[in-house]
Computed example of a mutant assay.
Amino acid sequence: MRLVWIWAAVIFVLDQVSKIWVVHVLDLATRLNIDVFPPYLNFRMAWNYGINFGLLAGEAAATRWILISVAVGIVLFVLVWMRRDPPGRPGLISAGLLIGGALGNVVDRLVYGAVADFLNMSCCGINNPFAFNVADIAIFAGALGLVLFPGGKKGS
């Protein structure tokens, strides 16, 4: 479990520091667009009130608290899973990625009322209109890792 907490803390801090730096220090919240290495990497401010790609993006307070509750529920589920049936090292790291990312987005919802998304990447003639953040990357990688390295009984 120590490995889970270490990776969760690393991702959480990386996510929050990146958001503070880009949204506030670089003032993306006001500027809205910063071309970093176009078209491959740009900063595009997007306040996500829903889940991935803006699904369930009602700005109602109830939606905000439901999404916070779901994220906390997922974190608790993964923690119980890791305690009851701990996977190997890749699975524990994956759990940490997912937990750190989920908690990073929960903090955004608590502080801003929405998740601060700012990374935008396009390539090869495909113009990606969506933005995401470090937490989103970690959640995706962590969920994929838990599918690939779910644990199970030792000795097989």
Rank of each mutant, 00 (worst) to 15 (best):
M1D: 12
L3Y: 12
L3R: 15
W7Q: 00
A8Q: 01
V10Q: 04
V10D: 03
F12H: 01
F12W: 02
V13F: 14
L14N: 10
D15C: 04
D15H: 06
Q16D: 10
V17R: 00
S18G: 00
I20D: 10
I20K: 11
I20C: 06
L26K: 12
L26T: 13
L26W: 15
L28R: 04
A29N: 11
A29V: 14
T30E: 12
T30Q: 14
R31S: 06
L32R: 15
L32D: 13
L32F: 14
N33K: 12
D35H: 08
F37V: 13
P38N: 08
P38R: 04
Y40N: 07
L41Q: 01
L41P: 00
L41W: 03
N42C: 01
F43Y: 13
R44G: 01
R44C: 02
M45I: 00
M45H: 07
W47S: 06
N48C: 05
G50K: 01
G50Y: 09
F53K: 01
A57D: 13
A57P: 04
A57K: 03
G58V: 11
A61H: 10
A61R: 10
T63Q: 13
R64M: 06
W65E: 09
W65Y: 15
I66W: 11
L67V: 12
A71L: 07
A71P: 00
V75Q: 07
V75S: 07
L76A: 07
F77S: 01
V78C: 04
V80P: 06
W81M: 15
W81K: 15
M82I: 10
M82K: 06
M82V: 14
R83V: 13
R84H: 12
D85L: 15
R89S: 09
P90T: 09
G91R: 05
I93S: 07
S94Q: 09
L97F: 15
L97W: 10
L98C: 07
G100E: 07
G104V: 11
N105S: 09
R109N: 02
V111F: 10
Y112M: 09
A114S: 04
A114I: 03
V115T: 12
A116Y: 07
D117C: 10
D117K: 03
N120R: 10
N120S: 13
N120C: 09
N120H: 05
C123A: 11
C124S: 09
G125H: 07
G125L: 13
I126T: 11
F130S: 06
A131Q: 08
A131K: 05
N133V: 06
N133F: 05
V134G: 02
V134S: 03
V134R: 05
V134I: 14
A138F: 03
A138G: 00
F140V: 15
L144W: 10
L144S: 09
L146F: 01
L146P: 00
V147E: 03
V147L: 15
L148T: 11
L148I: 14
G151A: 06
G155E: 10
